[in-house]
């Protein structure tokens, strides 16, 4: 009984997602007629157009998202190790700053980055976008990795030290491998956020030769002859990483969401 209600509620919640798929398969000629609940004359013309026009955008998004993951982990993992295990003075202040950093509205960062990039002449570059996108993820990644790394037992690290391992050695061969789940969580979220970013892309890369998929969708919406099956087909494609995430990495995602808000 509860299962039935649960399925019903979930279906209701996911209805807009279903609608997206439905519209993506609807031919343009049916688009202005009263909407039907399933694609009566299913077509792949929307997807064909995505393949023709959106592949470069897709490639850029992938590149930007992967670049953001690498940059984020490279910055956050060593810092988290230090905060969790080496415990230098001032770590509380830094932890506080990381919390505050997550609260800064994106529009303010975007305007600030825009001012700097214009001055340096580096607007419309992919790596500029990667740098900006990483700001969404780095504070979160540093905090979540700190809490994962804090659970590595001190005794293990002490034993390593007695065996002559320096801090770097301990980091690489003990702390990193045992915080695998934390690294996966941080990587997943950085990927997803960079992949989904629209604001930084719109402000910093809207004239670039390589633009991400979010701008591709935005272009479609801005067109006068709004071809909603192509828009929704692109949206479906853009949703793939989220779906994969849910399926493959459900438990990491839940862990990530909760540890962001409720500590231990």
């Amino acid at each position: 009984m509860r299962t039935a209600v649960g399925v019903l509620l979930t279906a209701l919640m996911l209805f807009p997602v279903y609608w997206m798929v439905n519209v993506s398969l609807t031919p343009m000629s049916d688009m202005r007629k009263p909407p039907s609940l399933y694609p009566v004359h299913p077509t792949t013309e929307g997807y064909e157009r995505v393949l023709r026009e959106q592949l470069p955008y897709l490639g850029t998004s992938l590149l930007v998202a992967l670049g953001t993951v690498v940059l984020t982990l490279a910055l956050a993992a060593p810092a988290a190790y230090s905060l969790a295990k080496l415990r230098p003075a001032g770590r509380q202040t830094l932890g506080f700053l990381l919390l505050v950093a997550q609260m800064i509205p994106g529009i303010i960062m975007a305007l600030g980055f825009y001012g700097i990039y214009v001055k340096l002449g580096i607007t419309n570059t992919v790596w500029g976008l990667v740098l900006a996108d990483s700001t969404i993820a780095v504070p979160f990644a540093a905090l979540i990795l700190t809490s994962f790394m804090a659970s590595v037992p001190d005794e293990v690290l002490q034993a390593a030290r007695i065996d002559g391992a320096g801090p770097w050695r301990s980091f690489v061969s003990i702390v990193l491998p045992s915080s695998r789940n934390g690294l996966i969580t941080a990587a997943l979220f950085s990927f997803l956020w960079a992949w989904s970013d629209f604001l930084f892309a719109a402000t910093l890369d809207s004239g670039g030769r390589m633009q991400p998929l979010t701008l591709g969708i935005y272009r479609y919406i801005g067109n006068n002859n709004q071809e909603w099956n192509s828009i929704m087909a692109t949206a479906v494609v853009a949703s793939v990483p989220a779906t994969v995430l849910i399926v493959v990495a459900q438990r990491y995602v839940a862990a990530g969401v909760t540890s962001g808000a409720v500590k231990d």
Binding site: M13, P16, W19, I246
Partner: peptide, 21 residues
């Protein structure tokens, strides 16, 4: 887990879907 989907979708996807709805 399925309930999480709306939160993980790119905002431009959710927003344009709602715009069409």
């Amino acid at each position: 887990a399925l309930f999480l989907v709306p939160w993980l979708l790119p905002l431009i996807v959710s927003a344009s879907t709602w715009a069409w709805l």
